[in-house]
Design a protein around this nucleic acid. Sequence first.
DNA 1: ACAAAAGTGTTTTAGATACACCCATGC
DNA 2: GCATGGGTGTATCTAAAACACTTTTGT
Lengths: 236, 236
Amino acid sequence: MKNNSFKNHVSVDCVILGYNEKENKMEVLLIEQKEPSKNSTHLYVPQFALPGDLVNEEESLDAAAVRVLKELTHVVGLRLRQFFSFGDPMRVKQEKDKEWLKFYRSDPDARVITVSYYTLVRKEFIIAEPGSFAKNVVWKNIKRIPPLAFDHNLILKKAIEDFRYRIYENETARQLLPKKFTLRQLQNLYEVVLNTEFDKRNFIKRIKKDTDLIPLGEKQMGVLRKPAQLFSFKTK
Amino acid sequence: MKNNSFKNHVSVDCVILGYNEKENKMEVLLIEQKEPSKNSTHLYVPQFALPGDLVNEEESLDAAAVRVLKELTHVVGLRLRQFFSFGDPMRVKQEKDKEWLKFYRSDPDARVITVSYYTLVRKEFIIAEPGSFAKNVVWKNIKRIPPLAFDHNLILKKAIEDFRYRIYENETARQLLPKKFTLRQLQNLYEVVLNTEFDKRNFIKRIKKDTDLIPLGEKQMGVLRKPAQLFSFKTK
DNA sequence: ACAAAAGTGTTTTAGATACACCCATGC
DNA sequence: GCATGGGTGTATCTAAAACACTTTTGT
């Protein structure tokens, strides 16, 4: 009865999607893996990866995600949302990942089941600095993702599929815009996330129905054209 | 670096939601736990639980869900969909579950992270027989769920929240209706799942837009009133 | 005066909803 | 012939989409 009490490594991976307003694009926060060993017998090619690591004993999954993100990137204060778990035994068996696993894991051949989290943030608010086994942290345009460690390309793809639905949740825009913003900024956000374009009159008509926009009676400053009105979201 | 290589028990839990057409309700398949030991020193109250158990070594999560469901209920051939993972360390620490864990787990105090699956089925197609540590298998109306083992009430609640979205996926109705069905049967299904009522003319107008319904030119037999036309879904 | 984006309404179209009567069958 | 659910169409309302010109500012 107690025969099949196997245990598995369980990890969390974090997909941090950053809205880059200036350049009108979505980016994802990746780490560059630290080379495990200078004197490795194998050729080691540092890889990009989602920030992720093993869950500790007596630590909830949500807490693990927050901790791991902090350890690898020093990013704190984000509300991460769990979206899917990946447990294919082959996900940690590829040649490209062997060397890294050998150095960082006491049982490098063991299967790792990973629980994935994502969130949307305003990129400019994030100050990321590498930590732990991250040599570097980088932002990559989600339209040009390099090959990643393990099955992280798959995880990222699924995260992106999911996150488009979230833009319609009122919270999302609130998180991705500054306190005061113009209607054009709001529209740009939706256009970037949904990868489309809207007629501005129709867009505002629609958005006003399910969002409480407060006109501030202020105007943009220092802009090279007719300054736009500033709005804020109604504080709940 | 290799300091935090903890391993965890990982389990899968299966939420099998059955459409009971005759009685117009949704039910969920539960097991009744087998009493661990006749001579237990503690009072043991058998609990209802979702079918679930630990994942084996080198077994994918999807495969584990299929296997576990079969072992506990002998139900096979379902396409299970992963929907969420639960890893709160306290989820296996409640008094009510202690006795059971002590008997069935080599490390009864260890945290168990569980990956949850669900599917929608036509209840009458399911022949469930208890196996392994299931003393019994029962269907319960999802509107009257008893207290369950571990955090299974929470898991079930989240599954039900999720599954309502799936009814609009064409596949779902296909799975829950017989090959030949009347428009009223189709409408009943939607009404039960969404817990609402529709005007039949409006419902059919809408459903015909995104579903290929084929009128079979046959009629119901042996019915106590005007027999209805039979339809089928277009085979893809 | 020019360039650049802000600001602003109306018309058209499509989809959703509301609604009521006759029909075919078994008993 | 009656009870039961099957079958059917139109009118109204609401939401979405298409569409163009004037205004305000900085240079």
